[in-house]
Amino acid sequence: MLDTAKLTGGHAIPTPDDGSPPVLEVRGLWAGYDHTPALQEINFQVAQGDIVGVIGPNGSGKSTLLKAILGLMPPWRGEVLLLGHAAASQQRRIGYMPQMERVDWDFPVTVDDVALMGRYARRGLLRRTTREDREAASAALDRVGMLPLRHRLIGELSGGQRRRALLARALANNPVLLLLDEPMAGLDATAQHQLLDIIADLQASGTTIVLCTHDLSCVSSCCVKALCLNRRQVAFGPPDAVLNETVLNETFGTHLLLVHGDGNAYAYGHHTHPDADHPHQTAASDGTEPSPRRK
């Protein structure tokens, strides 16, 4: 059994000097489906400009955590604060990019349409989108390099382009917090690098990002913090400090071999899922992620 408190405690939670609240604060969060808890007692804070990588096996509660932050799932206990306010009331300040598998790619909308959807909530019922909305959507497309493809149907895009189209939608509303669910899954190396570049740009411009991933190398290379989840919070802290064999074994529920090289940690090994996927998460991402690799 690991002492999570000691791990997080070892790296004092950074509180901004000016005393303003952290962008995201999760306190004592419990959430779940029906009567099954998918998250138990989650506590962490994210400062502005940080990138937090949430890591864990399928069914570990990664997507649930994002939904709880978005206010799509009411917490059983605890609270989620965005800049000090209940996150559920701040939905419009959060940008969200869902998993690829959850999107209907045959739907007859263009890249432009998708980006503009990011602005819909800003206009109430019965209101049409304005020129300002269309300009914001264009700017978001420009940031992810999708402006030249704006008139393409989403079904005609490659995997990386689809990801960037959804990212543009998440950015169209100028969010203070960006939630990315498995942004790297299934992408080839080139597309991954493109996306990582965009994420780095966003970070540089002050956007705070929480992303879920299976990819340890991604976490150790581009994230400021890592949150290791397996229904409960196994560890939270800078990747170098957190991504050790003990934590990873507890996160993934079995033995992994850690290989350090190029400053990145790679994990290999086999593991069994301690539990089935929760009912609302597809298992389609299985086998598509580069690591940890299963045999």
Partner: peptide, 10 residues
């Protein structure tokens, strides 16, 4: 098109 996302944006 995307009920989750629509819900997430209010």
């Amino acid at each position: 098109y995307d009920a989750d996302m629509a819900a997430a944006s209010g």
